[in-house]
Design a protein around this nucleic acid. Structure first.
Lengths: 203, 203
DNA sequence: TCCAAATTCCTACCGCGGGTACAGTACCAT
DNA sequence: ATGGTACTGTACCCGCGGTAGGAATTTGGA
């Protein structure tokens, strides 16, 4: 890795841990450059402004999260043949994954960006949108597999249902933080799992 | 209303519309005092700091929202006898209510506070928590009425289920904003309605 | 080995926003 | 008339994002 890229990565690492701990706008550039051991000028050489930093962080985060989802879905596929069972396993794993995150997950980056609108520009919002659409695609495929075998007990739009996975995660995070009860997020995901179960289980 | 209370209200009104339009931290005190036609000193006479303003706004907002929920649940009670029907009607009304909000609802205050943590202090978070617990109580009662008549098709915790209403709203708002598709929130609520339907409908 | 480009440092500065300090004033009720 | 309540006015501080522009250093390539 070229010298410049190393520094860039160091900045991102430092910024990431600070942002996850305290939030984006509570993390000052001065603080980042201090911990990354370079100067303010050095920072602005790598990032046009704080927005550019946010964009880089978000893109990085999304990549990792995508990978996480893929692994999770793959594990579910390995554990069962039946598409409904696979989905139920996947949602169970997802709930466990989120429950295991120590201080209750760092709070999804997507939502942070959504709720600090004015801080971010078009590019950031676009990256955000692509990420969410990616999740929709993944879970939609999961539900497509199910309906090919089990008819739904109620008339639902599968894209919306796929969105519901993300929606419940995001909402669950908000609720967990509002209530100061980290376990809430996982509980909400398990309720979604229950929905999937009763929706597709044959009578 | 005393002279002081009038001014205080004027500040809150001006602040509210600005905050709903642009977000809390994008709204400067200078701007508020300009539109409320008083001075900075005048502002700080009424509010210790920006935090106190946030608290007042949130408490006000929660009051209105509580009233809205109560009206909605009352209307549902008027429209049907059967507790399951009532719940389904309430959720339908809720979806319509949210869908009718012009530029897609202003984004729930609770979530804004949650995601701008460091901006707010303990008091604000406490107010937030109480609000969410209030919603839990309301919807929990709704579900209690249902289980008294219809056994659930799956084993679910009713508090969690009650929380799911809030959760889906919050998550739906995040998704709608992330996707720039305002209709998403209402769709998510209708999916929750579908869950309630299949969960409690006798086989 | 030398040059140019890339990378990092240094210093000084700007504007905005939240917030403080404090003196003065207008109004209203007892 | 007096004392609280509700302000106005002015001046100031600090942190933060960001800019300006030159100097130094490192690095890869001809």
């Amino acid at each position: 890795m070229a010298r410049g890229q190393e520094t860039r990565k160091r900045i991102l690492d430092v910024a990431q841990s600070a942002v996850l701990a305290k939030g984006f706008d509570a993390t000052s550039i001065d603080e980042i450059v201090a911990n990354a051991e370079l100067t303010k000028s050095g920072f602005f050489y790598h990032f046009r402004d704080k927005n550019a930093l946010a964009l880089a962080l978000i893109e990085r985060h999304i990549e990792i999260e995508d990978q996480l989802f893929d692994e999770l879905l793959q594990r579910a596929r390995d554990l069962a043949e039946d598409p409904l069972q696979r989905a139920l396993i996947a949602l169970k794993l997802l709930a466990e994954l989120i429950d295991d995150m120590p201080n209750g997950h760092p709070g999804c980056v997507v939502a942070t960006a959504v709720y600090q609108d004015r801080l971010f520009d078009r590019e950031v919002r676009e990256a955000n949108r692509r990420a969410v659409l990616g999740w929709r695609r993944r879970f939609r495929a999961m539900f497509d597999d199910i309906v090919a075998v089990y008819p739904a007990q109620d008339d639902v739009d599968l894209d919306s249902l796929a969105d519901m996975v993300s929606s419940v995660i995001e909402g669950g995070i908000v609720m967990a933080r509002a209530l100061a009860e980290p376990s809430v997020t996982a509980q909400q995901i398990l309720l979604l799992r229950s929905y999937v179960k009763v929706l597709f289980s044959p009578r």
